[in-house]
C-alpha cells in the first residue's frame, strides 16, 4: 500500500510544484517585478567601531554618560525609555545622590492617581521609577528607545548611521552612481517627511535631531561634534537595550574556560576506557 500510494503522492506534490514553478517563471518572464527605490537606494549601516564590539569589548562609562546627556537634552523630547529605571543610571557611574537629582529634576513627572478622589496628578520621579512616558502629538510615532539597538539590524551602527545620514534628496546618488530622483521620479520625499538613505523606506518622520556641533555641552571636555554625539547616544542606547552586556561577557569567559578544561578531561577519560 505504502509503496503504491507513496509515489503517487510524491508525484502529485511534484506536479503541483512544477505548475507553481511554471506559472512563476512565466510571470517573471512576462511581467518582471520592477526594482524599488528602497531596494536600490537603502544603505547598510556605516562600519564604525564601538568599545563594546567583539567578545572582549566593554562599555565606556564616560561615553555612556555623554550619550545619556544627548538622550536627555535631545531625544527625550519625543522618545520614551520606559524599560529603564532611574536607579539603573548608577551603572553608568553616577553616584546615588546624582541619580536622585537626575530623577527629581527630570522634565516629565511621574503620574499619580488617587483612587479615593479620582484625581490625577504628578510628582517628581524617584530613583525606583522607570523613565516616565513621553506623549508626542506631532506627525509620526516616536518609538520607545529602550530596546531600539536590539530591535534594528545593525544596532549601534544603525543608530549612528541614521543620526548622521540625513542628506539632500536632490541629486542623491547611490554607490552604483545612480541618481535617485532620475531613476524614480515618484520617490520624492513627501512633505513632512525627511530623506535618509539609512532608513528602511528612505523617508522618515523624524527631522534631523543632531544638527550642529556643540548642541549638547559635555561636562568632560569632549568636543560635541555631531559625529561624536551620535556615537555617544548610540552607545548609550546599546546600554539601555542590553545593560548586562559587560556582565554577560565577564561571566562567559570563565565558563568557557572551565568547560574547555572539563572537555579535555572528559576526552582523556574517554581515551582511558
Amino acid at each position: 500500500m505504502v509503496r503504491l500510494f507513496g509515489p503517487l503522492v510524491g508525484l502529485f506534490f511534484a506536479v503541483a510544484l512544477l505548475w507553481s514553478f511554471g506559472n512563476g517563471a512565466y510571470n517573471a518572464a512576462t511581467q518582471p517585478t520592477p526594482p524599488t527605490a528602497e531596494k536600490l537606494f537603502h544603505m547598510h549601516p556605516k562600519e564604525v567601531a564601538f568599545s563594546f564590539d567583539g567578545a572582549f569589548g566593554t562599555f565606556d562609562k564616560a561615553q555612556l554618560q555623554r550619550g545619556f546627556k544627548v538622550y536627555q537634552e535631545v531625544c527625550s523630547n519625543c522618545h520614551s525609555l520606559k524599560q529603564v529605571a532611574f536607579r539603573d543610571l548608577a551603572q553608568l557611574g553616577y553616584k546615588e545622590a546624582e541619580v536622585k537629582a537626575i530623577a527629581k529634576n527630570w522634565g516629565n513627572k511621574a503620574q499619580t492617581f488617587d483612587p479615593k478622589t479620582g484625581d490625577r496628578g504628578d510628582r517628581p520621579n524617584l530613583p525606583s521609577d522607570h523613565f516616565p512616558p513621553v506623549y508626542y502629538a506631532g506627525q509620526g510615532n516616536p518609538p520607545d528607545l529602550s530596546l531600539i539597538a536590539k530591535s534594528r539590524h545593525g544596532g549601534a551602527q544603525y543608530i549612528h548611521s541614521l543620526l548622521t545620514g540625513y542628506t539632500d534628496q536632490a541629486g542623491y546618488k547611490n554607490e552604483a552612481g545612480e541618481e535617485l530622483l532620475k531613476k524614480f521620479p515618484d520617490a520624492k520625499t513627501p512633505d513632512g517627511l525627511y530623506f535618509n538613505p539609512y532608513f528602511a523606506n528612505l523617508n522618515l518622520a523624524m527631522p534631523q535631531p543632531l544638527t550642529s556641533d556643540g548642541q549638547v555641552t559635555y561636562s568632560d571636555g569632549t568636543k560635541a561634534t555631531v559625529d561624536q554625539m551620535s556615537m555617544d547616544v548610540a552607545a548609550f542606547l546599546t546600554w539601555t537595550a542590553e545593560p548586562k552586556l559587560d556582565k554577560r561577557k565577564q561571566t562567559g569567559w570563565p565558563v568557557l574556560g572551565f568547560l574547555l578544561a572539563a572537555t579535555v578531561l572528559a576526552y582523556l577519560a574517554k581515551r582511558n576506557v
Partner: peptide, 20 residues
C-alpha cells in the same frame, strides 16, 4: 565516557552562543 566528551563539546558551543 564518550557521551561525557560529547556533552562537553555541546556545552561549549551552547555557552559561546549564550554569552557571546
Amino acid at each position: 565516557a564518550k557521551d561525557g566528551f560529547g556533552l562537553g563539546i555541546f556545552l561549549m558551543v551552547y555557552c559561546a552562543l549564550v554569552f557571546f
